[in-house]
Simulated scan of single mutants.
Amino acid sequence: MEISQTRCIGCGNCTYVCPMGAIFIDPETRKARINDDACVECYACYNGLSREVLPPKTARLARRLSKKLLLRFDPDPDICPTSAFEPDDLAWPRIVRRAFSDPRVPHESTGIVGRGTEEVKTNDVSGRIGIGQVGFTVEFGRPGVGARFSEIQVMSRALARIGVAFEPKNPVTTLMSDVATGDIREDILNEKVMSAILEIKVEVARTEEIVRAVWEVEKQLDTIIVLGVGARCDENGDENVVAPILERLGYKLHRAKTNLGLGHKTLRLIAPEEFERPPLAAALS
């Protein structure tokens, strides 16, 4: 994203919209600029502000006159009064930033928008996590913080060393140069995104091992790490296998989601012989 220096009048409205704090008012020119390194191409500035087309010279003159008269001439805080934002034609590897940071943009590798994964939250439909297995999502970054692929690679390499398999449909996995080692393509290692997710699944017996491995690696990273856990429920809709392990490790658990399968109950009542009971899934946090 670029800000036209001929159209910008330095109102500063856009500085409050950027979730990464990448927009600032240049003290020399008194116009808004974007820190390209901090920008994750989320387009929150371009899409979050209404755009008017006031002539820049007129708007600047009105501001100067108002200042001399000790009056304020500031546009509404949700408006770019001169439509100064100019989206770039993003090329590789920078385009990766937008794919992970703008929730409306689909990943070319998966066809899914946002961070590009259904995760384990749709396990009732996908059956990704089987009986005796546990799924983990390791999320990197948050608005205001973000994460670089070099940081994600530290985690993916550590997990690969202990013999875990990465979810092939995950967009981070598709960007690995070597899935067996967790290596990510060198040309995107310095790219920054608002957030991204690694996904793995292991046998339940390895739950504590994985949690402790994530704990160890996150100490080395200058970003936020959020660990999500998904497990299969029993026939009564309870999860009493993985939860005790997490509680022993110090987590206070609250069930985030329980998925039954869209329309499953109704369909079974209509034609029970045509449908098998799908697996229940509990997401613990």
Results as ranks from 00 to 15, higher is better:
Thr15Ile: 09
Ala256Tyr: 11
Met155Pro: 06
Asn170Leu: 02
Val172Met: 03
Glu41Cys: 14
Gly132Cys: 09
Ala205Asn: 11
Thr82Asn: 12
Ala62Thr: 01
Pro103Ser: 05
Arg148Leu: 08
Arg212Leu: 14
Leu198Gly: 03
Phe85Pro: 02
Thr223Gln: 00
Glu203Leu: 15
Arg185Leu: 09
Pro55Asp: 13
Lys201Asn: 11
Gly10Tyr: 09
Trp215Tyr: 14
Phe85Tyr: 14
Thr173Ser: 10
His264Arg: 13
Glu216Gln: 15
Gly237Ala: 04
Ser83Ile: 05
Val145Ala: 01
Asp183Asn: 09
Ala99Cys: 12
Thr174His: 11
Arg115Leu: 11
Pro272Gly: 08
Arg72Ile: 12
Asp37Lys: 13
Val242Ile: 11
Leu280Cys: 13
Asn13Arg: 06
Pro143Tyr: 00
Gly12Gln: 02
Pro278Glu: 03
Lys169Phe: 13
Pro93His: 09
Ile225Tyr: 03
Cys45Gly: 01
Ser101Leu: 07
Ser4Glu: 10
Arg232Pro: 07
Thr207Cys: 11
Glu151Gly: 04
Leu71Pro: 07
Val229Lys: 02
Asn123Val: 06
Thr173Trp: 00
Gly182Ala: 03
Ser4Gln: 10
Asn35Leu: 07
Asn236Arg: 14
Arg212Tyr: 08
Ser195Ala: 12
Asp74Phe: 14
Ser156His: 03
Arg7Tyr: 13
Lys121Val: 12
Leu249Glu: 10
Ala180Asp: 12
Glu247His: 08
Glu273Pro: 01
Trp92Gln: 07
Ser50Pro: 05
Glu41Met: 14
Tyr43Val: 11
Ala38Thr: 05
Ile245His: 06
Ile131Cys: 09
Met176Ile: 08
Asn170Met: 06
Thr110Ser: 09
Arg33Ser: 05
Met176Asn: 01
Thr6Ala: 15
Lys252His: 13
Cys18Thr: 05
Cys233Leu: 14
Pro168Leu: 02
Arg98Gln: 14
Val53Phe: 15
Val96Asn: 05
Asp187Arg: 06
Pro279Arg: 09
Val96Met: 09
Thr266Glu: 14
Ile9Glu: 07
Gly10Met: 05
Ile23Lys: 00
Lys201His: 12
Ala147Ser: 09
